[in-house]
């Protein structure tokens, strides 16, 4: 890690965390956020940082399968846990997740900044609620801010993905 400030060395901890199915071990400063650990240490820059205080939703990841803000967790707190980032959603390098497919097909992303948080939030949501109404999708993404204001197409994409996933395609 290159970003260690002077005096921080006493506050380092070894952690082991499963990220997208692979065990990642490392030594981190206790004040490193999970978001910075993913982006800076693991170079997984798909997790975006917008506000860095829990409001914008761009850094949402799945912790043990549940959507959480990576900017509001310390890396040291996820020792022994399992993290899924946007890089871990697609089943392979050539096949996208149905939700990613639908975002492409329905113009669900414009600048793409909010997309990783939208996707991770919605992956968990569709597991709990496989046949949502448009209103339920809007509530589910109410904590994810799209600065392009492309909500209509995000909702459309989500409903289409939900239908495809119910059909098993």
């Amino acid at each position: 890690m290159t970003s260690v400030a002077v005096g921080d060395e006493t506050a380092m901890r070894r952690i082991g965390v499963t990220v997208n199915g692979t065990l990642q071990a490392g030594e981190v400063s206790v004040r490193l956020t999970l978001a910075d650990f993913l982006r800076q240490d693991l170079k997984l820059t798909g997790t975006h940082l917008g506000c860095e205080h829990g409001v914008c939703g761009a850094c949402t990841i799945l912790l043990d399968g549940r959507a959480v803000r990576a900017c509001l967790l310390l890396a040291v707190q996820v020792d022994g846990h399992s993290v899924t980032t946007v890089e871990g959603l697609a089943p392979s390098a050539t096949v996208l997740h149905p939700l990613q497919e639908a975002f492409c097909a329905h113009h669900g992303l414009q600048c793409g900044f909010c997309t990783p948080g939208m996707l991770t939030t919605l992956v968990e949501f569709l597991k709990d609620c496989p046949d949502p109404s448009a209103e339920e999708v809007r509530v589910a993404i109410s904590g994810n801010i799209c600065r392009c204001t492309g909500y209509d197409s995000i909702v459309e994409a989500t409903l289409s993905a939900a239908a495809n996933m119910r059909d098993g395609s």
Binding site: S3, A11, C71, L74
Partner: peptide, 11 residues
């Protein structure tokens, strides 16, 4: 680093 330095305890 976002937060200021602190000592971390995990009881």
């Amino acid at each position: 680093m976002k937060p200021a330095a602190f000592e971390y305890h995990m009881p």
